[in-house]
Nucleic acid binder design. Structure first.
Length: 593
RNA sequence: CGGGGCGUAGCUCAGCUUGGUAGAGCGCUCGGUUUGGGACCGAGAGGUCGCAGGUUCGAAUCCUGUCGCCCCGACCA
């Protein structure tokens, strides 16, 4: 719908809104696309809505291509379905809960797996009805602890969520692949750079999960990628264990005095000074085995203290630890944990700063050791590897302690941080670390929800089988912000053609009647030709203001009708390149096609 | 949820230290002059100074509480 700027419901701001930090937020507010209602909640003005609709249209087309049918669920949902799957509790403070007049519990849905599953259960009961893929474009509500960056993390956001239903694992693979392909087409059409990373699926009980990340410095996720094509979330990154080595030529372990070395840095310095390596190479942090005490809270509420051993040049990455120990909640051991250990007469107290798995009289860490404390090690602590580690005596470390010979662990675990240069597990070379914003997520849910909610169908043999599901999300409003983030320049927004709020922005620059006569005619002509035109017809606004607004609003094609209008010449202004080309007004419509 | 910062006109901000009739620029309205990079002159409209208590003759200003917002971190799409 072509519009005259003098009538369009919009007001551009000359200055940046003070509460907007990132470019997309700043510019969308300044250019009059959105207005803030509350933290993480936005109203949409005509310009913003038009862009949104265009993104939605592309998503709808590709959903149709993937064979998914559109449905629509209310955002307002009763408690029961979410109670059955445990998410009424699980979601905690993230859930917007409310009560009706009869005091019954409701929520504003943060996601719709439950009700989609129930609807299919309601209608279908035969394998012949499957596979089925259905989706909606609906607002989601999550009471985020910290909404931020405008549309990028709101408490109300619009999401396309699709769900697939199959009765075989192979069928799920096919449905999953169709959605995955659709996502690739969507992001390609939107001109959004993306990488597909393996995501951790374990905690949710699913089997396969990939995230579409748009690389950007303001991204919230850290991911790793190799030149050879490997990409993964840091949580999903796995470390290859070095091959086991023979102990035969290794010297026996030796306890040495290392006064005042409670940290890895001090230890390395003292080791090099007092106990240099016989081969002349200097000790490094990677030669040390750091033992970190963690406190786990298990699902049943019990508290467990565990120790993880990892090379001293790496920190524990708590996100990775969280995944590795899921579903237990992980934190570094608290003062209370240490006090409890000290109070227990059966556990020799651990010497903070000098903790290690070994003592001359036997193992100190491990389920079968004197303490019984579970001891898990990094994959790099492979059989035959030698370490400097705590001797459980203040001011002393043991040198040349060999895994497999002198100590063993209760298993390996991935808690160490991933560093740039680490080898990709698929052998495709060293990885680099990058920041990304999640713009899509495809997920094989498996039978978790179908089981919980009793979605079964009869198979070919007349046997009841539980349906297997996938869920596939794309954040519509987030994508809009990510596009704005990726395409703006210092002067304003700069939309790709297929999502720009208008096809053409006409600027009437000048006060002579002829300027407006030519502009009016052009506006009518282009609209008739099927273009969606924004016409800056404001009579008393100076050209400078109009140019500035045109740049701010970001329609890619701008036509300036000005000083040469009387001669039938206008200018074609390419918003992206800034280039202005004089053109005869007569055949402009065909030139733009 | 931890740390930091901020709430005064539609927007960006000053005033608060040292209590005394609420200000500027932009935007908006009217009149006039301007019109190729955010023009000018004149006249206007617009604010319970986030909210609630308190201190005081008197509070935007001091005190207490509370709500909201932004940023960093933790967490999450």
């Amino acid at each position: 719908m072509s519009s005259r700027l003098s009538e369009l419901f919009v007001r551009t701001l000359r200055e940046d809104p003070v509460d907007a930090e990132v470019a997309s937020h700043r510019l969308l507010v300044r250019a009059g696309y959105i207005r803030r209602q509350a933290a993480g909640v936005f109203a949409w003005l005509p310009l913003g809505l038009k862009v949104r609709r265009k993104i939605e249209a592309i998503v709808r087309e590709e959903m149709a291509n993937a064979g998914a049918q559109e449905v629509h669920f209310p955002a307002l949902q009763p408690r029961e379905p979410y109670e059955i799957t445990g998410r009424w509790e699980e979601y905690g403070d993230l859930l917007f809960r409310l009560k009706d007049r009869k005091d019954a519990d409701y929520l504003l849905a943060p996601t719709h797996e439950e009700v989609f599953t129930l609807l299919v259960k309601d209608l279908y009961s035969s394998y012949k009805d499957l596979p089925l893929s259905i989706y909606q474009i609906q607002d989601k509500y999550r009471d985020e602890a910290r909404p931020r960056a405008g549309l990028l993390r709101g408490r109300e956001f619009t999401m396309k969520d699709a769900y697939s239903f199959d009765y075989t694992d192979a069928g799920l693979d096919v449905s999953y692949q169709k959605q995955r392909d659709a996502y690739e087409r969507i992001f390609t059409r939107l001109g959004l750079e993306y990488v597909i990373v393996q995501a951790d699926a374990g905690a949710m009980g699913g089997s396969r999960s990939e995230e579409f990340l748009h690389p950007t410095p303001i991204g919230e996720d850290t991911f790793v990628r190799s030149a050879g094509g490997y990409a993964a979330n840091v949580e999903a990154f796995t470390t290859e264990a070095p091959a086991a080595r023979s102990y035969e030529k290794l010297t026996p372990a030796e306890v040495l005095s290392t006064p005042d070395t409670p940290t890895i840095a001090t230890l390395v310095a003292v080791a090099n000074e007092k106990h240099p390596r016989p081969d002349g190479r200097a000790w490094t942090a990677a030669d040390t085995l750091k033992n970190i005490v963690l406190g786990l809270t298990h699902l049943d509420g019990t508290r467990e203290v565990v120790v993880v051993g990892l090379p001293g040049d790496r920190e524990v990455d708590m996100k990775r630890a969280e995944v590795a120990f899921a579903p237990a909640v992980v934190e570094t051991a608290t003062e209370a944990d240490f006090l409890r250990l000290e109070a227990d007469a059966n556990t020799p107290s651990l010497v903070k700063g000098y903790i290690g798995p070994w003592t001359p009289t036997g193992a100190l860490l491990g389920e079968d050791s004197a303490t019984g404390i579970r001891y898990l090690t990094d994959p790099r602590v492979s059989d035959g590897s030698g370490w400097i580690t705590g001797a459980n005596v203040h001011g002393h470390h043991v040198f040349g302690l060999v895994a497999g010979r002198d100590f063993s662990s209760d298993g390996t675990i991935e808690t160490a941080e991933v560093l740039a240069g680490d080898p990709a597990p698929d052998g495709s070379g060293p990885v680099e670390l990058a920041r990304g914003m999640e713009i899509g997520h495809v997920f094989q849910l498996g039978r978790k929800y179908a089981e919980a909610l009793g979605l079964k169908v009869l198979d070919e043999n007349g046997k009841l089988v539980t349906v297997t599901m996938g869920s596939y999300g794309v954040g519509i409003t987030r994508i809009l912000a990510v596009i704005a983030e990726a395409t703006n320049d210092g002067k304003g927004l700069l939309w790709p053609k297929n999502v720009a709020p208008f096809d053409i922005h006409i600027v009437a620059a000048g006060r002579e009647d002829v300027v407006y006569e030519v502009s009016d005619a052009l506006y009518a002509q282009l609209t008739d030709a099927g273009f969606d035109v924004l016409y800056d017809d404001r009579p008393k606004v100076s050209p400078g203001v109009k140019f500035g607004d045109a740049e701010l609003i970001g329609v890619p094609v701008i036509l300036i009708v000005g000083r040469d209008a009387a001669e039938g010449t206008i200018e074609l202004w390419d918003r992206r390149t800034g280039e202005r080309t004089p053109m005869p007004v007569a055949n402009i419509a065909s030139a733009l096609r």
